[in-house]
Design a protein around this nucleic acid. Sequence first.
DNA 1: TTTTTGATTGTTTGC
DNA 2: GCAAACAATCAAAAA
Length: 162
Amino acid sequence: MTGGRGKGAVKNTTTALMPADERKAGKRKAPVGRSSIPKAKKEKKADKDPNKPKRPPSAFFVFLEEFRITFKKENPNVKAVSAVGKAAGEKWKSMSEEDKAPYEAKARKRKADYEKQMKDYNKKQETSANGVADDEDAEEANDEENEASGEDGEEEDDDDED
DNA sequence: TTTTTGATTGTTTGC
DNA sequence: GCAAACAATCAAAAA
């Protein structure tokens, strides 16, 4: 048994909740051929592009950030991240779309920002691809600082167009 | 000491 | 279009 590190955080409860339907393939193991067998899930060495913008958190992740704080407050003894994830997942499913709305709205914003960053990132790639690439001082100075400082946002505001 | 693992869902991305 | 990777988190366990 070495399976599951000693932690055994999940225990047999998995069968109780069951990941909906194993979601994709039970987990994200089994590197088929997407890339080339990722030795490590996370970039332990950052040999990739540290400048590459990370993927924006989904609505669930946005909710998870907040849920973590609440969960920890009510369960200061629980330190297993898996427990928080499970609880969050259950609550997320019991939540109505209206409740998820603010989280989705935020996620949308993050995504928009992510696209912007990716655009800049791609630009840099081309620049460096040209060979010169010497000075990347330009760096992203863009940044926005908007929403963050806006602090008003919260709660949907996007209303965008639909 | 360092790295991985565990658990969740959603989004992204590569083929 | 599908399937897998990856996003945060954090403490414990393993190497």
